[in-house]
């Protein structure tokens, strides 16, 4: 790439260079500031009992164990629904439907719009559809299904990109060996598209763990340990919100929870990266920005 960092006379140029460098450094500074703040204020709260105890005094004291369980439950439900649905949709759009056919275009466009729907609107929808109409009430199930709807477009796009990266020669060669489409897809294309699929799952997890607004009136904010998927339960992100806004003196535990949440997100990213590398024996670059754009 062409190098612009070379010296060049002119105040105009100096001003411009100053602006560009400031913008760049600002991004690093903001990241350092926020991540540093969360680590700095959160690290003191985290110990084993914080992870294994139930919250007491509205969360000011005690730990976050039931909240971790609710979070994982909702996440599991979300992925359990969104992964099969996104795989099927991506397979249909990329392997079966006629490219640029009317139905494929319609589905594609509606996914674009779905990706842009604000999370609070998903919350309204989840409340009206899952909680009220399907009578699931405020429950892990309502929350998980609402999150699945949110994560779906990200995961479909990512899987599509993965399939697009598989060379057409694989499809032709497989056909020339008399492999059915089904075998071609499950034994050759999907394994080869694994980096894209994994990226999608990571993005989906990231979105689900970060989500709060869509859960306020679907999964609810009970701090008890959920006994079934029909029980209400609060996630880490809702816990942070509640402690920060509604519980005077809840800030330090809010930071502790925020740090746990961020560590969870980073850990899942790293694990998935390692997994992908191990499975494919080569480094997978997560193509974040294209899919990110949809969020």
């Amino acid at each position: 790439m062409f190098d612009f960092s070379s010296n060049h006379a002119g105040t105009n140029h100096r001003l411009w260079t100053f602006f560009v460098w400031t913008s760049g450094i600002l991004v690093f500074a903001i990241f350092g500031l926020i991540a540093g703040d969360v680590v700095w204020r959160g690290i003191g709260q985290i110990n084993l009992t914080f992870l294994t105890d139930s919250p007491t005094r509205s969360g000011r004291a005690g730990g976050i164990f039931p909240i971790l369980i609710s979070t994982l439950g909702i996440l599991g439900l979300c992925l359990g629904t969104a992964i099969p649905l996104s795989l099927a949709t991506a397979i249909y759009l990329h392997e079966f439907s006629r490219k640029n056919g009317a139905s494929a275009r319609l589905i594609d466009r509606s996914l674009d719009v779905l990706a842009g729907v604000p999370s609070i609107v998903f919350g309204l929808f989840g409340n009206a559809f899952f909680a009220v109409t399907l009578e699931l009430g405020f429950s892990l199930l309502s929350g998980g299904l609402t999150l699945a709807c949110m994560a779906l477009p990200l995961m479909i796009r990512s899987t599509q990109q993965g399939l697009r990266a598989v060379p057409d020669s694989f499809r032709l060669t497989a056909a020339s060996l008399g492999l059915s489409r089904t075998s071609t897809i499950f034994r050759i294309l999907l394994p080869a598209a694994l980096p894209g699929i994994l990226t999608g799952i990571i993005l989906g997890i990231g979105r689900a763990l970060a989500e709060t607004a869509a859960l306020l009136f679907t999964s609810g904010y009970v701090t008890r340990m959920p006994e079934s998927l029909f029980d209400s339960g609060r996630t880490l992100s809702i816990h942070i919100y509640d402690l920060a806004m509604n519980v005077p003196g809840g800030e330090s535990n809010a930071y502790g929870t925020a740090l746990v949440l961020m560590i969870l997100i980073v850990a899942i990213n790293v694990t998935a990266g390692l997994l992908a590398r191990m499975l494919l024996g080569r480094h997978i670059r997560l193509s974040f920005h294209q899919t990110r754009s949809l969020s």
Partner: peptide, 20 residues
């Protein structure tokens, strides 16, 4: 057609081995 393609093999210009 699957049976036909079993009976008629094909080799392409660029060797295409599957990543396995």
């Amino acid at each position: 057609v699957l049976d036909v393609r079993r009976r008629i093999g094909m080799i392409f210009q660029n060797p295409t081995v599957f990543p396995m």
